[in-house]
Amino acid sequence: MEQNTEKDGGHGGAGPMAMLSGVLGKGGFDQLRIVTLLFLAIFILYSVVLPGFFSVGNLLTLMRTVSVLGILGLGMAIVVIGRGIDLSMIATLAVPSALVLTLAAKGFGVVPAVGIGLMLAISIGVLNGILVAYAEIPSLFTTLAVGIGVAGIGQIGLFDYEIVSWPPALDGIAWIGRGSFYGVPYSVLAFGVAAIVIGIFLRRTRYGMFVYASGDNPGATRLTGIPLRPVLVMQYVISSCVAFFAGMVLAASSASMDTRIFNLTWIYDVILVVVLGGIGLSGGRGGVANVIIGTLLIGTIMNGLTIMNVSFEMQNLVRGLVLLVAVLADSIINPRNEETAQQGDI
């Protein structure tokens, strides 16, 4: 898909119209195209209707608010492409990064603190992966339970307060979430860097191809000789590391980490971004482009609603309905009936 957009962008020229023609270029209607069109439509509508929407300041705010969500979406995308799901990402975002802040505040030094946090994130990923790949517990339940457990570990005395503030000792790496580079906030750049790295991993490396294979047809993947189970473990480790990275960005930008962030609605936003962008939950489809467009769409909708001064509950409602439409579109584009559905596939 990435390659498609590149190619189509080549003969189109510049500007939004070129993007539009690129999107319609192949004639087919996959979800990426639909969502891109939807995004452009809403973007143009907002720009015309909402005063103050189409301004550099607002667009940067938009990007900054969704950058952490986007990073999480990238991590989730890897697992979803591998036909899994990682509901423990929010816990993995909060607990290891809060641990880093706590350790640094106690004078551990930047590198050991981050190292320990990373170790914790990796071990959460390994636990998820082993339970999914080797114990064969459905990923939904593994990551749900691990998420609850990790959040619980965070609550029992790892931290002095539920909100851990950013210690001065870590100011050396505070730039990953704060400040801006030629006007572009670093958190948006972090999203960009993560997107490039994961894009290269998925499309240009052997293990990235293994992820697609394991999601497309696990049985055939195994028969081909690809180490299916280690690849599955790897997916969860990567998503955990991405979540840790997102946590550090979030902590730096808000100068604290609220460990109560573990609640279920945030992870639903992450799934929303991934599914909305067109990464089918049956695995093996989609890529980084889908996450970016999904993130942009959600960011735009929410930003517009905020400008329109819509209440938080109403925003939730709208977000839910948008996700509903996305899932409905997914089930129409990738239809499943009694013959093609997999047993026990919920």
Partner: peptide
């Protein structure tokens, strides 16, 4: 409509919850 049970009911969870919060207010 043959939608995925997990996602669909997750969405209705959010939607109903939002509706509840608004009505509760």
């Amino acid at each position: 409509l043959r939608m995925r049970a997990f996602l669909t009911t997750m969405v209705t969870l959010i939607v109903y919850k939002a509706a509840h919060d608004m009505l509760n207010a």
